[in-house]
Design a protein around this nucleic acid. Structure first.
Lengths: 340, 340
DNA sequence: CTGAAAGCGCTAACAG
DNA sequence: CTGTTAGCGCTTTCAG
């Protein structure tokens, strides 16, 4: 804790606290002369303002809260990077909270925010989150919330997503083109809007390709990869096993690959795979992985930028902006049979 | 911002601010009766104390700062998870800052901390960081700093590391056992203590195996993977190319694999590889990757725990505790020729 | 056991 | 242009 404060500066300069404060904030009502005097002494004494005194007085923390389910996921770590980079630029600080996919924790965290700890929130909801009351409550306290990736559709605010429907449509279409007759879609939640959007894209592609909706093959995975692995083994052992798999999130890739390996099902000959993933390692997997790659960093940036825009305004609650940044399907060996 | 504060509670209960405050903090000098009355009303009105008022008064923020070079690395994301989990348990909040391997940023961030914004710091230094003045300065302000992974040896404080020397010795020994004649060590910094420790383990293993120190083959990689890739291509094209590679950090794995692929050097036949890595995807790479796996989550936990211990004490600066958690060498296909 | 009062460090109205 | 004053919401003496 710096023991030199604004009083000390004022005393040494024979100025009042108020004048010093204004000079430091570069107020127009202070002469250039005193400004430089103040700034110089401040510099010299390594004066650093107490952020909490300032926050208390101004009712503004210059801090945002980032609430995400998980950080061990290259999407979220990239997104944090995007968020952090714009926050730094704006002079904001970033509090990170993990929900571990628990709705209770998510609620508790948002509830804490009504203390005024943060000026705004960047949120990607847990897979359990099925209603929006907690978010509405923090927004009612005039703390803007911006969603990224895992949005809550019914909340009236800015949301940054990628083109989940289209990209999964494209992924499914791609697998169909490669000759897949039975494609499975691995879900991780019935609630998550983006997971369902992806599922719809998948179903629509099947439909457009002449398969009925009932032909869809949606598999409910969970947060526990041990269980997912067991489930996949069972499914891939069955007679009517799928010959194509779409993993709706990155973490499902490993159990899929391991299950295929264990059962001696070669990828892509026996099973073709596409994953939503931002793994840097995708090109060096066995076989290299076809991915739907999301613009994670950019989405983090966009979310933070949207939040800072709201923080500038009065009636932030009025806007309901939907920003969609496109993902790209990167075709690699896991989905293509004869690829030289 | 909650509009109901301690004054409001006091008014409604016909008590004084002070009494309410003490009741909320469960002070021994308040009767059970009034305590429950206060707690009930607080609950009912959803009272949440203003953290910044409290911080200002108590000179304690209940917040720690985590300063790391990068978050797109499975070591650091796992470590954050460990840190966050113990911070939550202790009722602390976590500010995350990224240095992007820049010493200047690291300095600026630590400098800001002397404002009292955080009660303590968890630090893993940038690859550029070559001196400890900035850390000494924040510690001089009575803000304890605990290092994890990328430590500064000369700072007298708690440090959490893994057994870098031994694990790299073991990795090198393993490659020698597999018949490697010329092993390259990929470094990313001359400054980083842990990278040098690993290098020493590597050199010692070579020495113990009858190779002179001058036989060591240390390659200076950088933060830019494009350049690393180009460098590796050059090295692997040469006549006297290495037949074994140790990547001192995870991110170097991809360029190594890609360079081998590009040059049609098969792993492990032509080149054997071990990486320091916590990739979940390691088992499903082509070929699966032999890793030195660090106890990342545990190191995060340990660092946070050490910090909270310091925060409880008076003369924190007195202790210079070195905690070492062991890494494990996980042998997979990339380093073993005839593995069924 | 409860109340009164002072003040953490800063900002913002208002005077001058 | 500068000074004075009154808090922000909470905690902590110190009295009673």
């Amino acid at each position: 804790m710096s023991n030199i404060n604004i009083n000390e500066l004022a005393k040494r300069l024979n100025l009042s606290k108020g004048t010093v404060s204004k000079a430091l904030r570069d107020s127009y009502e202070i002469s250039e002369q005193t400004k430089t005097k103040v700034l110089q002494l401040a510099e010299q004494l390594h004066y650093i303002p107490n952020p909490y005194a300032s926050s208390l007085r101004r009712k503004k923390s210059n801090t945002i809260g980032v609430v995400i389910p998980e950080v061990m996921d290259s999407y979220f770590s990239r997104a944090i990077k995007g968020i952090e980079s714009v926050a730094r630029e704006k002079g904001y600080h970033v509090l990170v909270y993990l929900t571990y996919e628990s709705f209770e924790r998510e609620k508790a965290i948002l509830n804490d925010f009504s203390s005024g700890r943060v000026d705004g929130v960047l949120l990607s909801v847990s897979s359990e989150t099925a209603n929006e009351n907690h978010v509405e409550e923090t927004m009612a306290k005039k703390i803007p919330v911006v969603f990224f990736d895992r949005v809550l559709e019914n909340v009236h605010t800015a949301k940054i997503t990628t083109n989940d429907f289209e990209s999964c449509y494209e992924a499914t279409h791609h697998l169909l083109q490669q000759g897949c007759k039975k494609i499975a879609y691995l879900s991780i939640s019935e609630h998550l809007h983006i997971i369902n959007k992806r599922m719809e894209g998948y179903k629509q592609a099947l439909f457009d390709h002449g398969q009925t909706h009932s032909g869809a093959n949606v598999i409910a995975c969970c947060d526990d990869n041990e269980k997912n692995y067991a489930l996949l083994l069972k499914i891939l052992k069955a007679n009517n096993r799928p010959d194509g798999i779409i993993a709706s999130v990155e973490k499902l890739t490993t159990p899929v690959y391991l299950a295929c390996k264990n059962l001696n099902l070669s990828i892509p000959e026996a099973v073709k795979i596409v994953s939503f993933s931002n793994w840097e390692a995708a090109p060096i997997l066995r076989p290299s992985l076809t991915t739907v790659t999301q613009p994670a960093f950019e989405m983090g940036e966009a979310a933070a930028t949207a939040l800072f825009n709201l923080l500038g305004k009065r009636n932030y609650s009025l806007l309901n902006e939907n920003t969609t940044l496109p993902s790209t399907l990167v075709v690699r060996e896991s989905s293509v049979f004869n690829r030289s």
